[in-house]
Simulated scan of single mutants.
Amino acid sequence: MTSPRRAAYALEARKLSRALVSRVAAVGTLVLVLVTTAGGYAAARYSAETDMGRQAAALVTAPGWAGYTALATTSVGITSLLAVGIVMAWSVGREFTDGTVVGLFALPAPRSTIADAKVCAAAIWATLLAAAESILVTAAGLALGLPWDGAVRSGLAIFLVAALLGLSALPVMWIATVGHGYLAGIAATLALVVVTNIAAGFGLGLVIPWAIPVLWAAPDSAVHPALLLAPFAAAVAGALLTRRAWARLELGNA
């Protein structure tokens, strides 16, 4: 017989894998990252005399894989955080918006276990999306003529940045729980993206966990790898807060 815990994990995995929002987010993210990275690099390299080429060249701050990786992680830094945050907000918030949270109280699994299952499913989805981004963007770099030497290192850097940013969006699930709907989570995701980019633009990126991975991947970066623990800590905090909020849910205020 399937245990309630295992059943909860399987249910949340099916929900997320079959949801239109997760599929659209995945496809949209992959397309945007590929177009902005490969397209931008191609424009900078082969059409440098055009307006688009000059704008793209300004973003490619180093030759070879170093510049390509920096361009890719800059794109990933926006698209992955936004897409994963929206999916995470939907995963939790839809239960309140659609009224299905009431039915979850009838399940044999504790609500904290349901929260764990949602967090686990979202984290795995975000990690798989990061892997797909890394493979696709690295393959595009090779197709553009970049050498095999350095490809693996670039792919790993892109994967690490995308995975950390995706996982660091987990606090959005807590906000969607507290706000009893996905709109609160989506608003929090947008705020994270805006604040992160503004802070990075003003040179304050090292105090924002969601900006650190992209700064670390920049050419000649002085960011210590230990600082990558900051977005991981944000992910852990988001998971724990979500679990605690779900454990305290009551039928009357759900």
Rank of each mutant, 00 (worst) to 15 (best):
V223F: 04
A44F: 09
L81V: 14
L144V: 10
D149E: 13
A115F: 04
I78V: 15
E12G: 03
A126M: 09
S221V: 14
E133G: 04
L170E: 04
N253I: 13
V31C: 13
N253A: 14
S80G: 10
Y9S: 06
V35M: 13
V137P: 03
T29W: 02
E133Q: 13
A151F: 03
A151S: 05
G53L: 11
A44Q: 06
L136T: 11
L144T: 01
A233M: 08
R18I: 11
T113L: 06
R6Y: 15
S17I: 10
I175D: 01
F159W: 12
P147R: 11
A7C: 13
G205I: 07
I78S: 11
E12K: 10
T113Q: 03
V87S: 05
A48F: 11
T97C: 13
A157M: 10
A188N: 01
R243G: 05
A109N: 05
V31T: 13
G67R: 01
F96S: 04
A176L: 09
H180G: 08
A13N: 03
T242Q: 04
L183D: 00
V178F: 07
S80P: 01
G203Y: 11
E133F: 10
H180Y: 12
A188K: 00
W210P: 00
A169R: 03
L215I: 07
A109D: 06
S22Y: 05
A10F: 14
G103T: 08
A151L: 02
S154W: 04
V92D: 00
L156S: 03
A13S: 14
A222D: 08
A56I: 09
N253G: 00
W65M: 06
A72C: 10
A143N: 02
A43N: 03
A115Q: 01
R248F: 07
A44D: 04
M88N: 08
I114Y: 05
L204S: 10
K15H: 15
T189S: 06
I158C: 02
L215D: 00
S134L: 11
A247G: 11
A58C: 08
D149K: 09
A19V: 10
R153H: 14
E49H: 14
R45S: 14
Y182A: 05
A237F: 10
V31E: 08
S221N: 11
S154M: 07
V161C: 06
D149M: 09
A254D: 01
A176N: 06
D220F: 09
Y41R: 02
V92T: 03
A56C: 13
L167Q: 00
D149A: 14
A26W: 06
T61S: 12
G166R: 06
R244C: 12
V102K: 09
H180L: 15
A191E: 02
G40S: 09
A13M: 09
L192S: 04
W174I: 05
M173W: 02
V24W: 09
S221P: 08
W125G: 05
